[in-house]
Simulated scan of single mutants.
Amino acid sequence: MQVFYATQFVLPLPAGHRFPMEKYRLLREALAAEPDIRWQQAEPASDGELALVHTPDYIQAIEHGTLDPALQREIGFPWSPQMAERARRSVGATIQASRVALAGEGVAANIAGGTHHAYAHKGGGFCVFNDAAVAARLMQVEWARRGTAARARPVRVAIIDLDVHQGNGTAAIFRDDPSVFTLSLHGARNFPFRKEPSDCDVELPDGCRDAEYLEALEWALGELERRFTPDFVIYLAGADPHEGDRLGRLKLSDDGMEARDRRVFEWAWQRRLPLAMTMAGGYGHDIASTVRVQRRTYVVALAYWRRWCAMAQSAPTPQRRPPP
């Protein structure tokens, strides 16, 4: 399974900053012994790719460090060249994972990403550019160019966002786009406190545990299927609904988080929907708990990637016709 990374681009954050930048390096180290993971450095998203979602003024302000200070504070990171480069590569990683999944591997991943608080014209909540939104739009363009989408409707993308915080930026970007379905399960009383309407929002109470969460997820997936027919899935597998998360306020156990992941992957597999995964949030009181949860997410993803491989290997080889 291909996993795209930009872990070498570390932001110079001030002492005591609450964003756990080291979790990406620790997760990669935790997965180092997995023989079926093929690591590839993410390429940066271009201006043209970012402009499928973001305004040119915002792209240039991030590139050159000229964003209004109030908007920079809303992102939560101080500007630096590393911040601008990492933001582009985080988008690039989700683009590359989407391409690989759609090209026949079925499952691929970005070890970071899930930056769902970024709007077209601004960022927020540790999110600079919206990687899932850019990847969704770009896959629609590229798929159509290849002729794979020779049909009466555009390629349809389902964004299944299971970060504990609502994907407000993603919801706003696709508000009037019937070719993308946004689904978000999130804490009702958590950030962002002013939410945007997704196509399907499920608000969960503080302290929500495994059974209640999984019941809500089952309902939401049924609602997605009732209202939309996707061709491709982008999955934000946030670790922050976990009971050990300091920003999450929900109470899912390790087993509950794994059951969540299995349900999403099984839902996509049963419909033979390629899936690109991003890791989104995770802010454990003990960073090791976040890494442990995310590692189990990768174990689930690998199992379903192997199913796609087995299906490809068992497919009959087309017979060549002899020359006339």
Rank of each mutant, 00 (worst) to 15 (best):
K195E: 13
T182R: 00
L162E: 02
V202D: 01
H165R: 11
V164D: 13
D177H: 09
N168Q: 11
G207P: 01
P205F: 14
F181E: 01
I159P: 03
R209F: 00
A211G: 05
A211I: 08
L162G: 08
N190L: 14
I160R: 04
A188Q: 15
N168I: 13
D199F: 00
N168K: 10
G187R: 02
P197K: 13
C200W: 07
T170G: 02
R175S: 05
V164H: 12
S179C: 03
V180Y: 00
P205K: 08
F174E: 07
A172N: 00
L204M: 08
P205M: 14
A172D: 11
V180N: 00
F181G: 03
I159Q: 01
A188F: 06
D163W: 10
I159T: 00
P178A: 14
H165G: 14
R209Y: 03
H165D: 10
A188D: 14
E203T: 11
D163G: 11
H186S: 03
T170C: 09
F193V: 08
R209L: 04
I160F: 10
F191G: 12
V180W: 00
H186D: 12
G167Q: 04
G167Y: 10
L204F: 01
E212I: 10
D176V: 05
V202T: 09
D163F: 09
G167T: 02
P205H: 04
S184T: 03
S184W: 03
F181R: 07
L185T: 04
R175A: 15
P192G: 12
C200I: 05
R209C: 11
S198C: 15
D201S: 11
L183Q: 08
V180S: 01
P192T: 07
P197S: 08
E203V: 07
P178M: 13
I173F: 01
P178L: 06
C208L: 07
H186V: 07
Q166K: 14
L162C: 13
P192S: 06
P192F: 06
R194Q: 13
L162F: 04
N190M: 03
A188H: 05
A211M: 05
I160V: 15
D201Y: 02
D206K: 06
T170P: 06
V180M: 02
P197V: 11
G169E: 02
N190F: 12
D176I: 06
V202I: 15
S184V: 00
E196M: 12
D199K: 05
A172E: 11
Q166I: 13
H186M: 07
F191Y: 15
C200E: 09
D163H: 03
E196L: 08
E212P: 05
C200G: 08
R189L: 15
S179P: 02
D163P: 11
V202R: 12
N190Y: 06
A211S: 15
T182C: 09
E203K: 14
P178C: 06
H186Y: 11
D176E: 12
L183M: 14
C200D: 08
D206H: 05
D176M: 00
T182M: 05
A188S: 15
H165L: 09
V164G: 03
N190W: 07
P205S: 15
F174R: 05
I159W: 00
D199S: 03
F181C: 06
I159R: 08
D163T: 08
I173E: 01
F174H: 13
D177E: 10
E203H: 04
C208F: 00
P205R: 14
